[in-house]
């Protein structure tokens, strides 16, 4: 048993702020979540039964379709912003950690590069999910019967 204090070279210096890293990572899924629940509520409200006094619950209900579209556009932009910020984070992380894509994916070099890479994927992935929802606006009849 020796008396040497433990020293490691880990982690490498970090020049990307953690809040920015997580903003890029989470803004896409957050935008998607909000647009989904809002879409559902508004779309369901359009089909409220005729014998119910819907105007007293939500005046201007007939604006729900444009509102859904606007929400989806904003959400899609936010997801792309998340991806763009993550691209910036990824470039900064590569410079500071000297890690290539294969090293990040394979050896796990650099937690900043790792999280930035995720941010790019979540931003683009949830952008696609939001577009899927938006397409439905033009293809699906709003109410049954």
């Amino acid at each position: 048993m020796s008396d040497t204090p433990i020293r490691t070279q880990h982690p490498p210096p970090q020049h990307v702020a953690v809040p920015l890293l997580f903003f890029g990572l989470l803004i896409g899924p957050a935008a998607w979540s909000l647009q989904l629940v809002t879409n559902y509520a508004l779309a369901a409200y359009r089909c409220y039964p005729d014998d119910m006094p819907r105007a007293t619950i939500l005046p201007n209900w007939h604006w729900s379709s444009p509102t859904i579209l606007a929400i989806n556009v904003i959400a899609a932009i936010l997801a792309l912003v998340g991806a763009a910020i993550s691209v910036q984070n990824w470039r900064a992380a590569r410079a500071e950690e000297g890690a290539s894509i294969s090293e990040t994916l394979g050896e796990g070099v650099g937690r900043t590069a790792f999280l930035a890479l995720w941010g790019i994927m979540t931003g683009l992935g949830f952008f696609a999910a939001i577009i899927f929802d938006t397409i439905a606006l033009s293809m699906v009849p709003q109410c049954s019967g």
Partner: peptide
Amino acid sequence: TLGFGVWVHHMFATGLPNLAMSFFSGISL
């Protein structure tokens, strides 16, 4: 994460509005 947004696909036969269901259908796909 997406799994939080698919629960309505268990309720497609309950008479919910089409458009509302379509959002959950899209995510289920």
